[in-house]
């Protein structure tokens, strides 16, 4: 954990956003929590990072974070990916906040595309960066149409799409951003997490907040909420599995990234959750390629 000193001079407000903007976002968060899975519009601001690079997540974090928080930021499950490093550095600077890579130590975890492998706890808030909050957008381009579908719970289009997938492939060929139903009322995009992570959305002890900056929407899954990944009785929801184990830590039940080792087809599979993998290795677990140089990369101070 790295504590950052107070900056003597601030050209921007604490946590970057002005207080009025924080209040606007905070009000949207409360409504989003009160209506789980509903996309609440908010007056998303231009941020000092580009739209599409986490502006929704950054605004949510900026609206809730305080100096007592411990902040972790991951992208693709890893703490050391460039954009995660960049966002973590931003909050260390503008919010005087301690940062960590340890999932269990963080009070706020901002994420893009993954839910950490380690189970979250009641004191934690998981903030998702969301590129496209509308689960139906791929099926219907118009916001005026999709908003009406949510209003009147008309989700036939989504089921038809899944059914067509079954008809074409024999199974539901959806891999990330797999549609979920929240408390049997709102269809919700879980953000582009792999469907491997979908089961972690439901009955999670932590607060799950979703921010889409460019699309100007906030939504939430409160703790211990029912989240169902859509499926059919004869084609039940299933998650990704691997024949391989993590090459570094030997984990058999984590989401794996495929790393290409040369241009003749050699590859290794490693945990996408870098902290999960590091903790396992520290505890003595070893995979078939333990000691590979990739393991050293996450030791770099960040």
């Amino acid at each position: 954990m790295t504590a950052r000193p107070n900056e003597p001079e601030r050209y921007y407000n604490y946590a970057y956003l002005d207080e009025q903007t924080k209040r606007m976002i905070r009000r949207a968060i409360l409504k989003a929590l009160a209506i789980p899975g509903y996309q609440a519009p908010f007056g998303s601001r231009e941020m000092p990072v580009p739209y599409g690079w986490g502006t929704g997540g950054i605004q949510l974090t900026a609206a809730i974070i305080g100096p007592d928080d411990v902040y972790k930021c991951i992208d693709q499950g890893a703490d050391d990916t460039t954009n995660a490093v960049s966002i973590r550095r931003f909050f260390a600077q503008v919010a005087d906040v301690a940062t960590t890579e340890e999932t269990g130590e963080a009070t706020i975890i901002q994420t893009r595309h993954r839910i950490p492998e380690k189970g979250l706890t009641e004191g934690q808030v998981l903030v998702f960066q969301v590129p496209q909050p509308e689960p139906l957008r791929g099926l219907e381009a118009r916001e005026t149409e999709t908003r009406a579908m949510h209003a009147y719970e008309e989700y036939g289009l989504q089921y038809v799409s899944l059914y067509e997938s079954v008809a074409a492939h024999g199974y539901i060929a959806s891999t990330v951003g797999y549609p979920t139903m929240i408390e049997e009322r709102y269809l919700m995009s879980p953000s582009p997490i792999p469907k491997f992570d979908n089961p972690k959305l439901g009955q999670n002890p932590a607060i799950l907040l979703f921010g889409a900056g460019r699309e100007k929407r906030i939504y939430a899954v409160p703790p211990y909420t029912n989240v169902r990944s859509l499926d059919f009785e004869d084609h039940p929801f299933e998650t990704q599995t691997w024949e391989e184990d993590c090459a570094l830590c030997g984990a058999q039940e984590s989401y794996l990234d495929e790393v290409v080792l040369d241009d003749s087809g050699e590859r290794m599979f490693v945990c996408s959750d870098s902290n999960f993998c590091a903790e396992r290795r520290a505890a003595g677990h070893a995979g078939p390629m333990a000691g590979h140089q990739l393991a050293a990369l996450d030791k770099e101070p960040a």
Binding site: Y51, Q76, P192, I193, P194
Partner: peptide, 15 residues
């Protein structure tokens, strides 16, 4: 921003 965000890692999606 959104066009260029495709430069960000998508390892998880790609896997």
């Amino acid at each position: 921003g959104f066009v260029q965000h495709l430069k960000l890692p998508h390892y998880v999606d790609f896997q």
